[in-house]
Design a protein around this nucleic acid. Structure first.
Lengths: 202, 202
DNA sequence: TTTCAGTAACTTACCCTTGGGTCATTTACC
DNA sequence: GGTAAATGACCCAAGGGTAAGTTACTGAAA
């Protein structure tokens, strides 16, 4: 370890501590939602007290934003590059699932931040979350549109409903996955592929 | 109206008021979850003040339980009778969707009470909610098992995952439906049937 | 090598609002 | 007057947020 720590260091360097807090925050926010999560509880998980969180992140919103952006940016990049790679419409769902699973393999609660229903309806977090949700929805809409067009269907509301159901399916899969710590991302992809092949012939 | 009201009646009879409160409570709990819903807000929607809710239902838990039981019992009955009627495994999903949609056509938030993630983890509501969720999961497991067995698959975890995804799909469909007030239960069933036929060939 | 100032890391003890819950009382009908 | 319906005004705990101080390390002067 090359110690580059400057003067005045008790405990651990800020950067490292911040990372711990964001990790703990992501899990707590993911478990209980923004509204249900408690700053004291997040601090307790890290083994630190509340004021430190406020010193580093300013507010509950500030911490939530950090967690949200980390999760949202990683996800958006992964999905975007997968979809950009292209392929048959029936292959996309599994490919995207693969991207999502490998992105969040060691951070499974992070996905839930993108789908938090306990957020306030106004303010900066509302805007940021709406932004990510819209990007996700757009990906889903593109996929659903390609899928439907390949079959000659064009009803806009059908497509919209399918896109919404798709994100709900991801929700469910991740909820199940959270309770299967032994199953890694690859195993999940394999399982989903097997299921889709058998149920839909995709 | 045959007025059978006894002595001492200001406002409206208790039975009627209770029904109003349960209606409003179901929507508020459905919108914001148990944790996020506020008793004052429910009272405000009804045009009444908080102490009346406590006089009639005892506590937030008491009111939530009333809402939960009404929703849960109606749903369980509807789904149970539909599944008891039997049919090809590929026909069951649409049939069950029909039961759910017609049950909650005028009460669309009620479904969400059965899937509330903001509940406390202990206590009477936790037990009651877990009970309904387990019943729902069992229905889903039965359906998933039949579906998989008909295709020669028996992996228990695959079946479990499918069952979980199924309830998530219902979640998503209802979330979409809530924003489509003009679409009634029959139209929803029609739409879902069309989609399933086109995507899966079911 | 000891001491001591400086600084980042961290905590104790507090404030304030929100929301669940209660009590005593009032209103309006029979 | 009796009774059910309903309310105003309060208590209390939980949780977001803050002010002021303490701890533990560093680097350098004595």
């Amino acid at each position: 370890m090359t110690e580059a720590r400057a003067v005045g260091t008790k405990g651990m360097p800020r950067e490292e501590r911040e990372a711990q807090i964001v990790d703990a925050g992501t899990e707590e926010f993911g478990r209980h939602g923004y509204g249900g999560a408690s700053m004291v509880e997040i601090a307790r998980r890290v083994g630190v007290t509340k004021p430190l969180l406020y010193q580093y992140f300013g507010s509950k919103d500030g911490l939530y934003l950090k967690c949200l952006h980390r999760a949202g940016d990683r996800l958006t990049e992964g999905v975007a590059s997968t979809m950009a790679a292209g392929g048959a419409p029936e292959q996309m769902p599994l490919a995207v699932l693969g991207a999502i699973f490998s992105t969040f393999d060691h951070d499974r609660y992070a996905w839930r931040l993108l789908r938090d229903t306990t957020l306030p309806s106004t303010g900066e977090i509302a805007r940021a979350a709406a932004d990510y949700q819209q990007r996700l929805d757009e990906f889903a809409m593109i996929g659903a549109t390609q899928l439907m067009n390949a079959r000659g269907l064009t009803d806009g509301r059908d497509i919209e409903a399918i896109a919404l159901v798709w994100t709900g399916v991801v929700d469910s899969l991740i909820s199940w996955w959270i309770n299967q710590p032994d199953e890694d991302a690859d195993a999940m992809v394999e399982r989903c592929g097997r299921i889709m092949k058998n149920l839909f012939g995709w």
